[in-house]
Amino acid sequence: MIDKGQLRATMRARRKRLAGLDPMAASRLADHVEALPPGDPVAVYRAIGSEIDMDALSVALERQGRTLCLPVVIQTDEAMIFRRWASGEPLEPDAIGVPAPLPLAEVVSPALILTPLLAFDAVGGRLGQGGGYYDRTFAALPATLRVGVAYTGQQVETLSLEIHDVRLHGVLTEAGYMAVP
């Protein structure tokens, strides 16, 4: 059985390759905005490295009239908070250097969290970067809908989940939205 560290390295390389093969994939996420579950505000993320970019989807969500927010790490061993944000508003690095809304932005509780990932399976398993930020946040907000955002090619047959891993309710890719049974 492959360990999570090795799987993460493999999936990072795969995601990077997928990003290079289809640079327009991120723009097609917006084509599927109507398929996303309802809920407001919606937590989006600022793509880092080869994560699938959320810019086009963020604009499409705003056009639907949805309020956006971004995750913010305040303490590295705690759940993230979410601050209201609109496309184009200024950002500054949070505690781990990820672009986040300014501290004056309103803290909100998202109804829907769109999360980046390295791999996903058909039953809602999610492999993240390994820091546990989203899993801690999902555990702190159990009623919030959780949707992974990825390239279609990031799907794997099955992921071995640990007790702290929280399943997704669905996955959005450039090919469409898949609800998890």
Rank of each mutant, 00 (worst) to 15 (best):
A43N: 10
A43M: 09
V44C: 12
V44I: 14
V44R: 03
V44H: 02
Y45M: 01
Y45D: 03
Y45E: 01
Y45P: 07
R46F: 03
R46W: 08
R46P: 05
A47Y: 03
A47M: 06
A47K: 10
A47L: 09
A47T: 06
A47D: 04
I48Q: 15
I48R: 13
G49H: 12
G49F: 11
G49P: 09
S50D: 13
S50P: 11
S50F: 10
E51F: 05
I52M: 11
D53I: 06
D55Q: 13
D55P: 05
D55S: 12
A56Y: 05
A56V: 14
A56P: 11
L57F: 06
L57S: 09
S58V: 14
S58W: 04
S58M: 10
L61Q: 02
L61P: 02
L61G: 07
E62D: 08
R63Q: 13
Q64M: 14
Q64G: 04
Q64W: 05
G65E: 01
G65L: 13
G65T: 12
G65D: 10
G65S: 08
R66K: 09
T67M: 10
L68R: 07
C69K: 11
C69R: 06
L70I: 10
P71A: 08
V72A: 02
V72W: 01
V73N: 01
V73S: 03
I74A: 00
I74S: 00
I74Q: 03
I74E: 00
T76W: 03
T76N: 05
T76C: 04
T76I: 12
T76D: 09
T76K: 15
T76S: 07
D77V: 00
D77W: 00
D77I: 00
D77P: 01
E78G: 11
E78I: 02
E78F: 06
E78K: 15
E78C: 12
A79N: 01
M80W: 00
M80S: 00
M80I: 00
M80A: 04
M80G: 00
I81V: 15
F82V: 08
F82D: 11
R83N: 06
R83G: 12
R83P: 03
R83K: 15
R83E: 10
R84N: 14
R84C: 15
R84A: 15
R84G: 14
R84P: 12
R84T: 15
W85I: 11
W85S: 13
W85N: 08
W85C: 02
W85E: 08
W85D: 10
A86Q: 15
A86E: 15
A86Y: 10
S87K: 12
S87D: 11
G88K: 09
E89H: 14
P90K: 02
P90M: 06
P90S: 11
P90Y: 03
L91N: 01
E92K: 14
E92Y: 02
P93C: 09
P93F: 07
P93A: 07
P93W: 07
P93G: 05
P93Y: 10
D94H: 00
D94S: 02
